[in-house]
Simulated scan of single mutants.
Amino acid sequence: MGLSALIVDDEQPARLELAHLLQQVTPVDTLDEAGTMVDALARLQEKRYDLVFLDIRMPGVSGLEAMQVINRLPDPPPVIFVTAYDEHALAAFEVGARDYLLKPVSEARLRLTLGRLLDRRRENGLARVAHDRLPVEQEGHTRLVRVADIRFIHVRGHTVYVRTFDAEWASRASLAELADRLAPQGFVRVHRAYLVNPEHVLEVHPFFAGTYILRMDDRGNSEVPVSRSSARLVREIFGL
């Protein structure tokens, strides 16, 4: 699948030259052009690009000024500055530019830039997969369970188990390791033997000496104990 790119330059010959070079270097599905910064920012509000080539000196709004707007987009695209002036390189990187290309751009330099960006995109994609899935053991092989499907994780004997709606698998990781790994996804250590996904808690029941029992939304409506030391955290999470 090819890239979607936006080339922003007030000079049409410069846009055409870069567009031709880009198509020689990598597959491109969508290639749009903008001759003014106003047009460019309007396009960026309406459409998601894999890459934006931005001239740093434009009439009216400069490339550096435009970056202040681009960086506030919900999912800002990678921006590469393309310019005939080398004195703005430091400022460009300070506002988040991925690279700084001097005109005329050579094919070799563009290949190097795109190679770095595509490598980073592949790494980010793999990181997202690793972030969203948790490896568990199933009959001699590894199964990848969606983190969002996990109800709770607990220790029984010397083994850590991962519970989903209607299944349970063993994990090679310790409960402490899983607590660290899953904290960004909201998982909470509510007991020395239990780690819970609050998204799947159906009910909170008061229990002995200020503790609680959490009833989960798995098939069996499992009950998870809350230790006294974690009771305050549970109250804060659920607004009790």
Score class of each variant (00 low, 15 high):
124 N>Y: 12
132 D>Q: 12
136 V>T: 02
139 E>R: 14
128 R>E: 08
149 D>H: 06
121 R>Y: 05
113 T>V: 10
125 G>N: 12
123 E>Q: 14
109 R>E: 06
146 R>K: 13
118 L>D: 01
130 A>P: 11
143 R>K: 12
131 H>K: 14
114 L>N: 04
140 G>F: 02
136 V>Q: 00
112 L>A: 11
113 T>I: 02
129 V>K: 10
111 R>M: 07
132 D>P: 02
138 Q>E: 14
114 L>E: 02
119 D>M: 13
134 L>D: 00
139 E>I: 08
134 L>E: 05
139 E>Q: 12
133 R>T: 07
121 R>L: 07
133 R>Q: 08
117 L>D: 06
126 L>C: 09
148 A>Y: 09
144 L>K: 06
129 V>R: 10
130 A>N: 13
117 L>W: 05
114 L>W: 01
109 R>H: 03
135 P>G: 03
121 R>F: 04
116 R>P: 06
136 V>W: 07
120 R>E: 15
138 Q>R: 15
135 P>Q: 06
113 T>Y: 06
130 A>S: 14
110 L>Y: 01
137 E>Q: 13
116 R>L: 15
134 L>C: 05
110 L>S: 02
127 A>S: 05
113 T>N: 04
116 R>T: 11
126 L>Y: 11
134 L>T: 00
146 R>W: 09
112 L>M: 13
125 G>F: 15
126 L>M: 14
117 L>F: 03
117 L>A: 06
118 L>N: 02
118 L>E: 11
143 R>G: 04
128 R>T: 01
115 G>D: 08
126 L>N: 10
116 R>E: 11
143 R>E: 07
123 E>G: 04
134 L>G: 02
121 R>N: 05
139 E>F: 09
137 E>M: 14
147 V>F: 00
129 V>F: 10
122 R>E: 15
140 G>Y: 01
110 L>M: 07
122 R>P: 07
119 D>W: 07
118 L>H: 06
113 T>E: 07
115 G>E: 09
123 E>H: 10
126 L>H: 09
129 V>Y: 06
111 R>D: 01
125 G>C: 12
136 V>Y: 00
146 R>M: 13
129 V>D: 08
114 L>R: 02
131 H>C: 09
